[in-house]
Design a protein around this nucleic acid. Structure first.
Lengths: 142, 142
DNA sequence: CAGTTTAATGCAACTAAGTTGCGTTTGTCA
DNA sequence: TGACAAACGCAACTTAGTTGCATTAAACTG
C-alpha cells in the first residue's frame, strides 16, 4: 500500500484540516522518502524548496501528523533524535549500520504477533506496539 | 549471574581503574536495582546518600561504565532520556506500560538469535545487538 | 467576491538532557 | 611521602524540542 502525497492530504482534508504549503511539502517528502527522517533532516529537505518554514511550525506539523496516524515515530538506540516514517508502510523493522549509519528496512519471516499473544496470556500485559531495531555492520562496511 | 557491587568494582580495579566514592555508590545502585535507571534517577538515588556528586561527573561515570561494558544503554520509544541497566543481566526485553510507565522485564521463549543468523545470510548484515521493547497496558492498568 | 472564523504560522524565549574545557583534587603506586 | 594521571567540580555551551502570544491565511458563508 504505497501512499501518495495526494492521498495523505485528501484524507486529512476529509476531516476538515487545511491544506497548507507546509503540509503539502511534508506530505510530498514522506511519500517519496522510504527511510525514517529526523526533524532536522526534514527541515533540510524543506529548505531546499521555495518557502522557508519555521522550526516550531515544523515540529508542530510533525506532532499533528503523528497524532493523525499519518506518520510514526522511531527511536534508534545510538541516536538522540526521533525519526519519522509513513505509518502506512508494511510492518517492518530496521537494520542500522553502526559504521556508516545507513538504515535498511527488513520484514521478518515470523513476526511478533504470536509473541504478543503469549505475553497477554502469561503476563496480562496488552501489547499495543513494539519496537525492534537490529544494530550491526552492513554488507558494505563488513 | 547476579553481579554484585564488589564484583563490578574488583573487575574494574583489575584493569587499573580507581575505586572512587562515586564509582562505589553507582556500582551499589546498579547491583541492587534491576530496572533501567535514567541519569536523573541515578542522581536522585545518589543525592540520598551522604556525598553530593556533580552532574557532569555522573554523566562521565555513566559513559565510562558503558564503555567498560558494565552497563548497557536502553532507549524507550516514548521517552527522551536514555536509561541504563547492568549489562550482565540475562538477555531480556521490556514491557513498558504507557499508562503507569512501569517497566517489567521479559524473557522471550524463542529469542532472536535465529532471526539474526538469517539476516546475515539474506542481507549480509552482521547484527551485533538488537533492541526490542513492547509497549502497551499492564495488568494493573487494564 | 468580501467578510469571518479559526487553524496554522512566526518569533522569541524557554526547557530538558547531556557535553566540554579547564583548573583542582585525590587514589594509587613507586 | 611524593608524583602523576584518573577523576572531579564548576560554569558555560549545545542539541533537540516546546510554549505563549500576537499575526497570517485557508476555507467556509452570505
Amino acid at each position: 500500500m504505497k501512499e501518495t502525497a495526494a492521498s495523505i492530504l485528501s484524507s486529512l482534508a476529509d476531516q476538515g484540516f487545511r491544506m497548507t504549503k507546509l503540509r503539502k511539502a511534508i506530505a510530498g517528502i514522506f511519500a517519496s522518502n522510504c527511510l525514517p527522517l529526523s526533524a532536522d533532516e526534514l527541515m533540510g529537505l524543506l529548505r531546499s524548496g521555495e518557502t522557508a518554514f519555521n522550526r516550531a511550525t515544523v515540529y508542530r506539523e510533525i506532532a499533528f501528523l503523528k497524532e493523525q496516524g499519518v506518520i510514526q515515530e522511531i527511536q534508534f538506540l545510538h541516536e538522540r533524535v526521533k525519526r519519522y516514517e509513513l505509518a502506512s508502510l508494511d510492518h517492518h523493522h530496521h537494520l542500522v549500520c553502526l559504521r556508516c549509519n545507513r538504515v535498511e528496512d527488513i520484514v521478518l519471516e515470523n513476526d511478533l504477533v504470536e509473541q504478543e499473544k503469549s505475553i497477554l496470556k502469561s503476563k496480562g500485559f496488552k501489547v499495543t506496539n513494539h519496537m525492534l531495531e537490529f544494530h550491526g555492520i552492513c554488507r558494505g562496511c563488513l
